[in-house]
Write a protein that binds this DNA or RNA. Structure first.
Lengths: 415, 415
DNA sequence: CCCTATTTTTTCGAGCCTCGAAAAAACACT
DNA sequence: AGTGTTTTTTCGAGGCTCGAAAAAATAGGG
């Protein structure tokens, strides 16, 4: 059961609150922080002076913001970029991408690499990941001690504790505890996240106006993934990352899915399914291993030009997505949706059937008010989400005052 | 955004923790509470002496528990039954049931009443509810001032704020703000809850071993409802009570559902659907308004005896429930399930097809390990859940120390 | 029957933390 | 240069939790 609040937790939590307020607001003044957190000016003053002393926050030169107001000018508080750094590792089909990001969120260095994830051995896959991380850590420009956290993202299912990849379509290997492996190798805390969840995290930071407390990010790619934010919290399953929207059942006993089962949403709306239907290959045809983005874009162009089986394939995809969303909405009520990935660029072909289907469901009562946004490129989103996830983790660890402060802090309060 | 922790919140929260610990544990000693909450003995001592002084907790006579141990005997702390009372109002098809419950959870008085909810006017429905509440409040044995909260439950959809019934199968009326109406009428804080959510709450109190952090309560009745607890929290939609499992889509364009749409799980597994299939009436047949529990029991008996269309009807119900659960499990991962309601008594007829269906889905990977429990009687569960919900609300209000303490407290700390 | 070991509960002083009020600081405007 | 305005810091008061020690209440042993 939930544990009582100790007296020293109080300061820790309020420090957390202040750091979070600064990360969200950019360069807020102390007064602004007091307003958003509800804490008194004195408390904010005390905490921020601590945080500045510890090198976590910096005061910006008053010259920066041209203050037009009357009284004493506000001094903005910002995150000290040198306070720490984090690393993001995004592993997707045949592609590995790493970046080092400073505490303020700026990319410091990055590296990308093609590899054949589908055929690699377990050892080779792990080896490539540790090797690329090691190369970034050996970057002479980088103060290694300051890398306070690594966040990995992978397509597929991860465990709730964010330690391991349980299953992924990009490799036949299963149950790889990437987080533990990297921690053991480099002594840096790491987490293993689901790619679509990171998309959702990123959307929240990019556009908090639209993506705030409740929204859905759907990845329309080779497979279908989902990141779900409900009541301001990232939704995960009880044991795994969950939210496997693509494997909800659209038609019992229906088309063959990449997962080996039948009738999943993905078996109608994944790239391979659209491809299969466009080629009129029949629903029992083994899913193609990969369909390139270029091929999908060409397919969409053909569908737009001359209709035919190509257009019908997109219609079926829309129908599956619509009924799937309808079932989802029956559970969680409608919420704004972001469609991400190559096929989001073909959303014009998908939308009519999708809306028609959703109108047949419980969630479709106000079907026209459900709004969709599209973003064809998932990778930047995933990396951004990873970065924010890692940074907020650091935020929460740096709060903890006292002895075991993280390595890589600029100053220390040796009072 | 979440607000900072004020200094005075600390005591309030820790009081809450202590009360919650007592409600859960029954008659814990101060030492036990210190252990479960993680707070120090001194703090527990201070808080519990406050709570006893305010008449919220009582010390039990040391004689009660035959202490066999060596040292100073523990003195148990219990909830003072007279500290407050709550009222539960359960509105179901053609039936209204009210109970008054003391702070320790014992039923003090109750009343039940049959009415024709399907044909009643809005005013009549509201009138019956307020009248029955008024009658209970006028009970001469009852100290009216002590009724600190009313919890209503109704089949159907309520809003997230627990103020109103938005839609219900038991009446054509919609959007009745029962909570506001009762508050205005009696000046007692009220909430309007979904019946299946209350079932889940009750199961958690009844058997915390099995129903702890993640589980599903499914109502197999005229309609199909669900109460869902995830990560220890009751799951609700973004705008409504959500969790409308019965209206997830089983077969796009399929059987006619009571909600007017097609292919919902309920259109195969609700009592009216089983009835319709058993009578071989065709999937477009308008759902029967009501099928009595006796009729359903007879139907199940026939199905067991001679198979035929009756058995097939239950098979179809199992299939729909299985695929529905499979889609649900794709989102949240598998969890223990409690089947509640008349048709739970026919679960033997449902289970084979259900398990077969679930095995075809993403959630069915360990299909045999998913465990089902059955409970044929939903009403006691719903009432129990309401009671606990109301009582924990009271717990949280009574914490708040200071001036605006709730009416109905025995003593007061006039230091 | 008294004394001792044991366990639970209370008491007490110390150390933090937050808060409100007032003071100080830093500017714009006249 | 003086005044008004807004932001930030300072300072004392009041609360809260904690650890250690004391007090309370019992069982067991001689």
């Amino acid at each position: 059961m939930s544990v009582g609040i100790r007296h020293d937790d109080l300061r820790r939590r309020n420090r957390a609150m202040v750091i979070a307020a600064v990360r969200r607001a950019g360069r807020p003044s102390r007064t602004e922080i007091a307003a958003t957190t509800g804490l008194s000016h004195s408390t904010i003053s005390a905490i921020s002076s601590d945080l500045i002393g510890e090198g976590i926050l910096t005061e910006s030169k008053p010259s920066e913001a041209g203050s037009l107001k009357r009284g004493r000018p506000q001094v903005g508080l910002g995150l000290n970029p040198e306070a720490a750094a984090v690393m993001t590792v995004v592993l997707s089909l045949n592609f590995l991408s790493v970046a080092v990001i400073d505490y303020a969120g700026q990319v410091m260095s990055e590296e990308q690499r093609r590899l054949d994830t589908l055929t690699m051995s377990r050892e080779a896959l792990i080896g490539e990941c540790t090797a690329i991380v090691r190369r970034r850590l050996e970057d002479p420009d980088l103060d290694v001690r300051s890398v306070a956290r690594i966040a990995l993202a992978v397509q597929g299912i991860t465990d709730t504790e964010a330690r391991a990849m349980l299953w992924s379509p990009i490799t036949p290997q299963t149950d790889i505890a990437f987080a533990d492996i990297l921690e053991a190798e480099f002594g840096i805390p790491a987490t293993m996240e689901n790619d679509c969840n990171m998309m959702a995290v990123a959307l929240r930071w990019r556009d908090p106006g639209r993506y705030r407390d409740d929204f859905i990010a759907i990845l329309l790619s080779h497979g279908i993934g989902m990141g779900l934010v409900l009541k301001g919290e990232l939704f995960t399953g009880t044991h795994s990352s969950g939210g496997e929207f693509g494997h909800m059942i659209h038609r019992p006993g229906g088309a063959l899915c990449r997962c080996g089962r039948r009738g999943c949403v993905e078996a109608y709306a994944g790239n391979y399914a659209i491809w299969r239907n466009a080629r009129q290959l029949g629903e029992d045809t083994e899913p193609a291993a990969d369909v390139s983005d270029a091929q999908m874009r060409a397919l969409a162009a053909t569908a737009r030009e001359r209709g035919g089986p190509e257009r019908e394939a997109y219609r079926k995809a829309g129908e599956a997505l619509g009924y799937g969303l309808g079932s989802l909405f029956a559970l969680i009520d409608p919420a704004p949706v972001a469609m991400v990935g190559v096929s989001a660029a073909a959303f014009d072909l998908i939308e009519p059937a999708l809306r028609e289907a959703i109108a047949q469901t419980a969630g479709g009562q106000h079907s026209e008010s459900i709004s969709f946004d599209t973003e064809p490129n998932e990778l930047p989103l995933i990396r951004e989400g990873c970065a924010m996830r890692a940074l907020t983790f650091v935020d929460q660890e740096i709060f903890a005052p006292g002895a075991q402060a993280r390595a890589g802090l600029a100053g220390k309060n040796v009072a």
